[in-house]
């Protein structure tokens, strides 16, 4: 999978807007690398699994629903956050995992 992932990432380096920011939140030892992050509308968060087993990251928040499905170690799934608000992110499998993403409008900065 890494062989596939790397070229895609390298290609995509040249196709991403320079305005929106990219953030990586990893999953390791059944925890998110951050408890809370603050981003802007339009930013992308890459959820990167660093555990030797599957995670299934999701949010049931009203502002932004997503279910990234389950994916193994060294793979990531990405979400572009397009609505301001506080987004609660969990892992369906591991109930202790919790991340709060504060999505701010650009003018909030």
């Amino acid at each position: 999978m890494r062989l596939i992932t790397l070229p895609i990432l390298m290609l995509s380096m040249f196709s991403v807007s320079t305005f929106a920011e990219e953030h990586v939140v990893s999953q390791k030892n059944k925890s998110f690398s951050e408890n809370k992050i603050s981003i802007n509308v339009g930013d992308t968060v890459h959820f990167l699994n660093k555990d030797p087993f599957f995670h299934n990251i999701f949010s049931l928040s009203d502002e932004q629903y997503f279910d990234l499905g389950s994916y193994p170690k060294d793979e990531s799934r990405s979400v572009v956050f397009d609505t301001p608000g506080e987004i609660e992110v969990e892992c369906a499998i591991h109930s202790k995992m919790f991340l709060l993403i504060e999505v701010k409008k650009s003018e909030d900065n």
């Binding site: 890494r2 990432l9 390298m10 380096m13 660093k50």
Partner: peptide, 9 residues
């Protein structure tokens, strides 16, 4: 960002 992600992987 991508360099960081690649090294991390």
């Amino acid at each position: 960002f991508y360099f960081t992600l690649l090294v991390s992987q």
